[in-house]
Nucleic acid binder design. Structure first.
Length: 316
DNA sequence: CCTGACTCC
DNA sequence: CATGGGAGTCAGG
C-alpha cells in the first residue's frame, strides 16, 4: 500500500526508506560484528538440512542466506564479507534453474528451444506474450515478462500479477492466458502435476523427495488453492535443491581428492560460494562449473555463472 | 509468543 | 471471498 501511495506523496516513500535503513542497521550492521568468533575471526552460521518443506537448506544464527544485495546501501554490507589475505571469493550461481527444470518436466517446445539455443528467457516470453520482437521490446515488456515467468512457477493469480505490475486485473488475466496459449506444454504439465497430486496426495521431486499435500482435496477453496500452489511449486524448487546438493557432494569430494586449499563456505539456494588462494582460482573455476552444469543431464542445459573477487560485492 | 516489517532465493 | 513458492531476524505488543 505504501508503495502505491508513494506515487502520490513523498511521505510513504520516507516511511519505507526509514524501515529499510533501520532493518539494515539492526539486523546486519549492528548484529553481525558481535558474532565474529574470537578464535577464527569469522562468522559461522548453522546450516539446517531438515528445516524446509521443499528440501532446501536453511541458515540461522546468523542467517547468511539473506545478506542484502538489492539496494546499493544493502550491497555495501555485502562488501564486508571479504576473503582472507592471499585468497579470493568465487561465486557460482545457477542461471534460471527453476525455469530450466520446468522446461525439462514439461518438455514445452518453446521453453526447451529457448534454453537449448541460449536465449534470454525473459525476452523470449515478452516476444511470445506481447508479440513484440527483441529489438522492439522496452523495459516494461521485459519487466512484465519476468514477473510472468516467476509468477508461473508459483501459481500466481491475475490478482497477484496485477498488483505486482500495477496493472488492471483483466489485463493481467490476458497476459496469463497469452502465456499459456504460447507455452501449451507448460499449461499441460501444470495440469498433470495437479492431477497427480490429487491422486497420490503428495508432490515429488525428480529425485524422489516427497511432500504431502493433504489439503489438495479440501472442500474449502482457500485451503485447496494453497495446496495447489504448493503442489505446483515444490517439484520445481525441490528439484533445484536436490541438484545443487548433488553438485555440492561432487565438489566436496573433488576438492579433497585434488588437495585443494579452497573451501566451500556457503550455499544460497542456487549459489555456491568458495574461498580459495589466488593461485587456485583458475583451477577451481572449471571444476565448479563442470560439477554444477553436468551434475545431472536434463532436456535443457544447466548453466552456472561464475564470478570472483576480493569480497562478496565486487565480483566479476 | 505472535504479528508485521524487513532481508534473501 | 481470497488472491505467488520457500526461508530467518528484528521490533513491538
Amino acid at each position: 500500500m505504501l508503495e502505491e501511495l508513494a506515487l502520490l506523496h513523498e511521505l510513504p516513500r520516507k516511511v519505507l526508506e526509514y524501515r529499510e535503513l533501520t532493518k539494515l542497521k539492526s539486523t546486519y550492521v549492528d548484529a553481525l560484528p558481535k558474532l565474529i568468533h574470537a578464535e577464527t575471526g569469522r562468522l559461522h552460521t548453522s546450516i539446517c538440512q531438515t528445516g524446509t518443506a521443499t528440501g532446501r537448506l536453511s541458515s540461522s544464527d546468523p542467517n547468511l542466506q539473506n545478506i542484502p544485495v538489492r539496494s546499493e546501501m544493502g550491497r555495501q554490507i555485502r562488501a564486508a564479507f571479504v576473503a582472507s589475505p592471499g585468497n579470493s571469493l568465487l561465486s557460482a550461481d545457477y542461471s534460471q534453474i527453476e525455469l530450466r527444470i520446468l522446461a525439462h518436466f514439461s518438455m514445452d517446445p518453446v521453453l526447451v528451444e529457448a534454453f537449448r539455443t541460449g536465449q534470454d528467457i525473459h525476452a523470449r516470453t515478452a516476444e511470445e506474450v506481447f508479440r513484440v520482437g527483441p529489438m522492439a521490446q522496452n523495459a516494461e515488456h521485459r519487466r512484465a515478462a519476468k514477473a510472468i515467468n516467476f509468477g508461473i512457477i508459483y501459481g500466481q493469480s491475475p490478482f497477484g500479477l496485477a498488483a505486482q505490475l500495477s496493472i488492471d486485473q483483466k489485463e493481467a488475466a490476458q497476459f496469463i492466458a497469452a502465456y499459456f496459449a504460447r507455452y501449451r506444454g507448460v499449461k499441460e504439465y501444470l495440469e498433470r502435476s495437479l492431477a497427480e497430486a490429487r491422486k497420490t496426495g503428495v508432490t515429488r521431486t525428480m529425485f524422489g523427495r516427497t511432500r504431502p499435500v493433504p489439503e489438495i482435496t479440501a472442500p474449502q477453496a482457500n485451503l485447496r488453492s494453497f495446496a495447489e500452489r504448493t503442489a505446483l511449486n515444490t517439484p520445481l524448487q525441490g528439484t533445484a535443491a536436490d541438484l545443487i546438493k548433488l553438485a555440492m557432494i561432487v565438489i566436496s569430494r573433488q576438492l579433497a581428492e585434488e588437495k585443494f586449499k579452497a573451501k566451500m563456505i556457503l550455499q544460497v539456494h542456487d549459489e555456491l560460494l568458495f574461498e580459495a588462494p589466488h593461485n587456485e582460482i583458475d583451477r577451481l573455476r572449471p571444476l565448479v562449473r563442470k560439477a554444477m552444469e553436468q551434475v545431472h543431464k536434463l532436456a535443457v542445459p544447466l548453466v552456472a555463472d561464475l564470478k570472483a573477487g576480493p569480497n562478496w560485492r565486487d565480483m566479476k
